[in-house]
Design a protein around this nucleic acid. Structure first.
Length: 362
DNA sequence: TCTGGGGTCCTAGGACCC
DNA sequence: TCTGGGGTCCTAGGACCC
């Protein structure tokens, strides 16, 4: 028996769900995102494979997507429907003899001890397809990182395995940016240290990298280069640390009376989410993005934790009052950070215990 | 091509206390 | 007197991910 991690990733999830409930959309370029208006200030959440052939991909501004494929079907994101579809898939996964850790609507890790992970992957794909009519790819690894990276080779709808045996053969010469957890900024900083490839990162001194990139992040990045990841999944229900709501306006806002009204409205929405959560809030934050794209945040710890909507709104308005008012605003946001939570005997860290959290990776 | 929304964790500096 | 060292909390910002 060997410990395996399977990374299950649904193909073009949002577009697939839309094509499922509207069969006339099958085979057509479908773009899901924002309010469905391709002229609004939003980005693509998911593009169907047909749309990807026009060069449309997640994160791309809607306006550009519309220019690349004017005949695509543009749909608003219908989150409740995607959540429900996701729940169905996760329920199928939980029927296997595995520990399921949900990563997002369309992704989950499975922890499994056995001898033939490909056989399990095939069973999982078949079960998901039979029960939900959705297609998924499965990456197999000896830890989370390798399983996740394997999925890139498995898409769409296939299976691929990456372990310590083929890690360096597969990624050794690749740029560090291919690693899950290293983005463009970190890739650039590593390059400044003379570290360009995965192999070079693996062989780097964790301390030296830590001096440039932080005492925890430095050694963590080196571990990524070595292909290290978790082998124990978190099977317990996810407990959120914060809830937030934010809106980008199609027209910049200049009128500060309107700004405060929007902050109130956002705080009401956050309070509703907080009420659903049934937990007290310890800190309230406000985010302001000025035109053209300058983002600032301010926050305040409450005198005592509360879920009282009136107190949360008053705090949000107070914090909003600390911002400069002399330039147009394109985005406003309100965030609530929860006080400590106890879950099944254990306690999640309080806000003030941030930074002392346990290691994620060896 | 002017760049969503909802999250997580880390970093660093200053306040404050002993 | 111009000089400490550690520890915790708070805050703003950074980076990354789905």
């Amino acid at each position: 028996m060997t410990r395996w991690v399977l990374h299950v990733d649904l193909d073009q999830f949002l577009a697939a769900v839309e094509q499922l409930r509207r069969p006339e959309l099958r085979g057509r370029p479908v773009v899901v995102g924002g309010n469905g208006d391709p002229s609004s200030r939003t980005v693509v959440a998911t593009a169907s494979y047909e749309a990807r052939e026009f060069g449309i991909h997640s994160g791309m501004p809607m306006r550009l997507a519309a220019r690349r494929c004017p005949d695509a079907v543009f749909l608003p994101a219908d989150n409740p429907t995607y959540e429900a579809a996701s729940e169905e898939v996760m329920a199928v996964l939980r029927e296997f003899d595995v520990v399921v850790e949900v990563i997002g609507w369309d992704e989950a890790f499975l922890q499994w001890d056995g001898t033939d992970p490909e056989a399990l992957a095939d069973e999982v794909r078949a079960a998901v397809r039979a029960r939900t009519h959705l297609s998924c790819a499965v990456g197999i690894g000896d830890n989370t990182l390798r399983a996740k990276m394997a999925t890139g080779f498995a898409k769409p709808g296939g299976v691929h395995r990456i372990t310590a045996h083929n890690w360096f053969a597969t990624f050794g010469d690749s740029p560090t940016g291919v690693l899950h957890g290293i983005g463009t900024k970190t890739e650039r900083k590593l390059a400044e240290l003379g570290i360009h490839t995965v192999t070079q990162l693996a062989e780097a001194s964790p301390t030296a990298v830590g001096e440039r990139l932080g005492p925890r992040m430095g050694p963590y990045y080196v571990s990524l280069g070595r292909g290290m990841g978790r082998t124990e999944m978190e099977g317990a229900a996810y407990v959120p640390r914060s809830r937030s709501r934010e809106t980008t306006y199609d027209q910049d806002i200049d009128d500060w009376t309107r700004v405060l009204a929007e902050i109130s409205a956002l705080s009401v929405r956050v309070s509703a989410d907080v009420a659903d959560e049934g937990r007290d809030v310890a800190r309230v934050g406000v985010k302001v993005r000025y035109a053209p794209f300058l983002t600032t945040t301010r926050s305040r710890t409450l005198d005592s934790p509360t879920r009282d909507p009136a107190v949360l709104e008053a705090a949000a308005l107070e914090v909003a009052g600390w911002f400069r008012r002399d330039r147009p605003i394109r985005l406003l946001g309100v965030k609530a950070e929860f006080a400590e939570v106890s879950v099944g005997g254990g306690t999640l860290p309080t806000i003030s215990e941030r930074g002392t959290r346990s290691e994620e990776t060896p």
